[in-house]
Simulated scan of single mutants.
Amino acid sequence: MARAKAVLFDNDGTLVDTAELLLKTFRYATRAVLNREFTDEQLMRGVGIPLADQMYDFTDDPVEAEELLRVYRAYNKTIHDEMISVFPGIPELLLALERAGIRLGVVTSKRHDVCQHGLEICGIADRFEFVVGSDDCSEHKPKPGPVLYGCELLGIDPSEAVYVGDSPYDILAGRAAGVRTLGVTWGVFSRRQIAEAAEPTFWAHDAAEAARILGVS
């Protein structure tokens, strides 16, 4: 592929491994508030859209959804720092992209401050020019707004960017925004789950393969 001017990354499941953290927190909140059991797949199926919206996967009651969100955030804060880690090869990939003059940003459905804190814990926050969080944009994935806003911050046309993500919502948002998309399979969702919703421009199964596709290996 022609080398992109910029690469935008999703956060959870793409840059940082939070799968067990999210699963543990969802299970705690749904047990505490609803006194119900859900399968792992049910708990994780909404990962990639704003957290407040995910709560409606478990209840139709706005009061219960609000309480789920409150309990989730309170519990998550107590275990977050010890359960988050950067995926293998990501620091090296980001350094290679930076050295190649490719501009970098994060576009996530997580709140800005929580995402920024996680990136700092993982030692990769300084690689990015900005974070676009769920509270930075009125539109959310799978709509294109957050990705388009990232391109706007960089002052580039969407055709000059690649969006890297591990969820169907990432690929749908990227395609709708007109950027090239790189689907990664080391996160929460399998290749089959992503492809059933939207086929990305490229696939990568580890950071080294992503580096080759992005032209920096």
Rank of each mutant, 00 (worst) to 15 (best):
Y72M: 02
N76W: 02
K77E: 15
K77C: 05
K77A: 15
T78P: 03
I79G: 09
H80M: 04
D81K: 11
E82Y: 13
M83A: 11
I84R: 01
I84N: 02
I84W: 08
F87H: 10
P88H: 07
G89N: 06
G89D: 03
I90N: 02
L94A: 06
L94T: 08
L94G: 03
L97D: 10
L97G: 08
E98D: 12
R99F: 11
G101W: 10
L104C: 05
G105K: 12
V106I: 15
V107W: 00
V107E: 05
T108G: 10
T108A: 14
S109D: 05
S109V: 02
S109T: 12
D113W: 09
V114T: 15
C115M: 08
Q116K: 05
Q116F: 14
H117M: 11
H117Q: 12
G118F: 05
L119G: 02
G123V: 12
G123Q: 12
I124P: 00
D126G: 14
R127S: 13
E129C: 07
E129Q: 15
F130D: 11
F130R: 01
V132T: 09
D136G: 11
S138H: 09
S138D: 14
S138P: 07
E139L: 15
P142L: 12
K143Y: 13
K143F: 10
P144M: 08
P146Y: 09
L148I: 07
L148M: 12
Y149L: 15
G150V: 00
G150E: 01
C151S: 04
E152R: 13
E152H: 09
E152C: 02
L153T: 04
G155N: 07
G155I: 07
I156H: 06
I156L: 15
S159D: 13
E160T: 00
A161I: 01
A161L: 07
A161H: 06
V162K: 04
V162A: 05
Y163M: 08
Y163A: 01
V164A: 00
V164R: 04
S167G: 11
S167Q: 05
P168E: 09
I171M: 14
I171C: 03
G174N: 03
G174L: 03
G174S: 12
R175N: 07
A176F: 00
G178K: 11
V179H: 04
V179L: 02
R180G: 04
R180V: 06
R180T: 10
T181W: 00
T181N: 04
L182H: 00
G183P: 04
G183K: 01
W186P: 01
W186H: 07
V188M: 09
V188T: 13
V188P: 00
F189A: 01
S190D: 04
